[in-house]
Amino acid sequence: MNSPETPRLTRDDVAHVANLARLTLTDDELDAFTGQLADVLDHAADLEALDLDGVAPMANPFPLVNVLRTDTPVDHDVRDEVLAAAPSIEDEQFRVPPVLGEAP
């Protein structure tokens, strides 16, 4: 299905995605995952054999829309519990290491 000259997924692609996910992979792991992920993509590529003109992309496997709740507040009162579970807190807030740059 996949011609060897234009692989569906390269080792660089996997390294890029791993970096975005903040994962440090060894060379052996990169090789292994490149092969495994390529197999997953090949499996999904079976769909290309089907005529899908006029078939809308599926956003969710359940045939449901508009699952909504009313806008009624609940007092959860969980602050002390969740702060107690945090590695570091200060002034009732979560204390985190210095962050480089702005949120994207």
């Binding site: 709740r69 806008d71 009624t72 507040p73 609940v74 007092d75 959860h76 969980v78 602050r79 969740v82 702060l83 002034d91 009732e92 807030q93 979560f94």
Partner: peptide, 23 residues
Amino acid sequence: TATKLFSTARNEFGGDPNTNVDP
């Protein structure tokens, strides 16, 4: 709104830190 987009914690400006939170 009175609550958050995906949960029942309050949508309120100026509360004490981390009081309007939920899982």
